[in-house]
Amino acid sequence: MAKSSSSSTPVPDTAWLGSGCHLGPDAERDVRRNLIALKAAGVIDGFLDLDPVEAARSTDLFPRDESADPGPSARRVFEARWRVADGVTVRAQLTTYEPESRRIVGEGVTWVLAAEAERPWEASWPSPATMFWPDSDQVPWDHDRVPGVRLRTANHLPKDDGELRRLLRDCSRQSWFIHVVVHEAMTPDALGRRPVTAFLPPSLRHRVVEHRATPEQALIADFAMKRELGVGLPRGGAVVLPPTSQAPGYDPERFTVRAVFLDGTEPTELLRKIEEFASLPRPLPADAERVLTRLRQGWHLLTPDEELVHARAMVTRYAKALEAMTASCDLYREAAESALAALAEATGGNHTSPNPTPAAAADQDASPMKTLTKALALFRNPNR
């Protein structure tokens, strides 16, 4: 998987996207177990466990182009389909990848997930992440692609200024998630250490990474964030970070909360800011654009009705292609017949002459050529 960068295309309002790392021993086994359990419980309608080569293979009935290929480092492709409120169908595809560098200890298995619904996504719907991954703290699937950053917990910022600034840069360039920084005005108790993301709606909970600055980090965190991203961190407050340092339309004041009480109660204002930020158009990471295209163009888990519709569409497509080929052959045949007739007319039925004079020979050569050119010109005329 290449490092992420943003494109000019916004994330569709029907899509849910995520990318992270699984640091456990067998990522694919964890996915399979979860899918089997949810299928048995009736939570999902069905799923597929695909070899990447087979997933990208093109057939006569299912022609696929290169957009369906997850790449040479792909380990496994999983598809799942389920229904949410009012019977809205959601289709999702999760692909696991080999670590980018096997020399880095604990880098884990990279995964990308794209889900798309039949209508605009709602935060109250179930999280696509927990349709594939078990929602258990014992399964370490929820690490960001940025090392040392994890979902479902409060990540404390590095104490070193250089490391902190490097972390902020990596989060803005590599991560697909929304990042929030909260400053602890004083060291919280057990209830205050609970991540504020736990209060978010299900489908938004696994799209947000929470960072914590300790009481003594107020100045260093504020300085580093202003330097790298152009946003400040209020003492005892919080801010939703922009996806890039030059994010268009981002207003720091709009997504800053002056006071957050970390006492275990629901931080209503901060949650509202996060939900508001999540509803805004966001640039689609370049990696995500390919993943979303692969979900749409390389989908395999069809219902019987969808298979019938697809088969009928392919029959119609091949019939039109055959009709076009037949028409083309007829045109070529007509052109050849016209050319032969013109040549016969020009030579009087004789293609050779016993002893033509040089002038006659030249005139004889020119006349058939002129006639043949006219015949071919008629064939090239689209109105013929």
Results as ranks from 00 to 15, higher is better:
Arg83Gln: 15
Arg205Ile: 08
Ser136Val: 05
Trp82His: 13
Arg119Lys: 13
Ala321Ser: 10
Leu262Gln: 02
Ser67Cys: 09
Gln174Val: 13
Ala278Gly: 13
Asp30Thr: 15
Pro283Trp: 00
Arg32Met: 07
Thr293Ala: 10
Cys171Thr: 11
Val209Gln: 10
Thr96Gly: 04
Ser4Trp: 02
Asp13His: 00
Glu98Leu: 14
Ala346Gln: 14
His206Ala: 08
Asp170Ile: 02
Gly18Tyr: 01
Val149Ile: 15
Lys39Val: 07
Ser328Val: 03
Gln138Phe: 06
Asp26Trp: 07
Arg384Val: 12
Glu116Gly: 00
Arg32Asp: 14
Trp133Arg: 07
Glu345Leu: 05
His22Phe: 14
Arg103Glu: 09
Met131Pro: 07
Ala327Asp: 12
Arg102Glu: 13
Ser6Gly: 10
Met131Tyr: 08
Ala366Phe: 07
Thr187Lys: 04
Thr187Gln: 02
Val109Lys: 01
Leu270Ala: 08
Ala247Leu: 07
Trp125Cys: 11
Arg76Glu: 09
Glu289Val: 00
Gly46Thr: 06
Val309Thr: 04
Glu228Val: 15
Ala221Val: 14
Trp141Met: 04
Val112Pro: 00
Ser245His: 15
Thr316Asn: 10
Phe277Val: 03
Val31Leu: 07
Arg296Thr: 06
Thr110Leu: 03
Ser73Cys: 06
Thr326Leu: 06
Arg152Met: 01
Leu378Cys: 08
Tyr97Leu: 04
Val182Gly: 02
Gly148Leu: 05
Ser367Asp: 03
Gly349Trp: 12
Gly230Thr: 12
Leu262Thr: 05
Asp170Phe: 08
Arg333Cys: 06
Phe223Met: 10
Leu340Met: 12
His156Val: 13
Leu280Tyr: 01
Gly348Thr: 14
Asn34Glu: 15
Gln217Asn: 06
Arg312Val: 04
Ala288Leu: 01
Thr89Gly: 03
Trp133Ala: 15
Ala286Arg: 02
His143Val: 00
Gly24Pro: 09
Leu151Tyr: 11
Glu79Ser: 09
Glu228Leu: 09
Ala346Leu: 08
Gly298Lys: 01
Gly264Asn: 12
Leu340Thr: 08
Ser127Val: 09
Leu322Tyr: 14
Pro267Lys: 08
Pro304Gln: 01
Ala68Lys: 02
Phe78Thr: 12
Asp363His: 03
Asp287Ser: 11
Val209Ala: 11
Pro283Asp: 03
Leu340Cys: 07
Gln138Asp: 11
Ala224Gly: 09
Ser338Glu: 11
